[in-house]
Amino acid sequence: MYQDCYAPYDRMPVKRRNSWYCLEIKTPIVPEGTVFITQYHKEFKDAHRRMAIATVGRDNLFLREQIDSNLRVDNIDKIIRSNVSVMLIDKDKLEKRFAELADQWEEETRYSSKMRDIINNPSYVKIKMLGKGVIPMILQRLQRNRNYWFDALKYISATDPTKGRQVDDIDQLADIWIEWGDAYGYCVK
């Protein structure tokens, strides 16, 4: 009945009439036309998960219908507003923008030995704001040219696969992130 289901999501973008409400999604760029079932929370700590069906549009997701009968349409505004949003954007544009910022960051911090300056560089901060879509691009760069991408990866992914792992060398740190990317479908290798 429903094809190409991607799960799990924490949250999803929603279009509601003329207003855009977008939520962060966990997986990489999802193809247009994909239909999926998703769960979302009314509030951050709300254990009562609600279900909905959404369809990926050209640059957004549409909430089609709710499966959970407890969810009323007029509740959606309140639910969505409580979440931080990230839009699906055009992949080519994203790649181009990332490449510009990444090249700029690498050049500007090439001779800096101060980690604070490196990760607070304006181009690096802008990369962090680009969202999860740049994770594969970062990981590709990390494979090709080892650099201090770890802070950006942690921030964007909201996770840390190196936590609790024995790491003796910075290359191991990079390898853990690359393995993580591969395991989570960021198609690095």
Partner: peptide, 24 residues
């Protein structure tokens, strides 16, 4: 290499970054 920085190198170290911002 990104394994050490100027401060580490000046201290004679080539396998750690000398910085107070922690990566690991």
């Amino acid at each position: 290499t990104y394994k050490y920085n100027c401060l580490a190198w000046a201290a004679g170290v080539n396998n750690k970054i000398w910085d107070y911002v922690s990566l690991h």
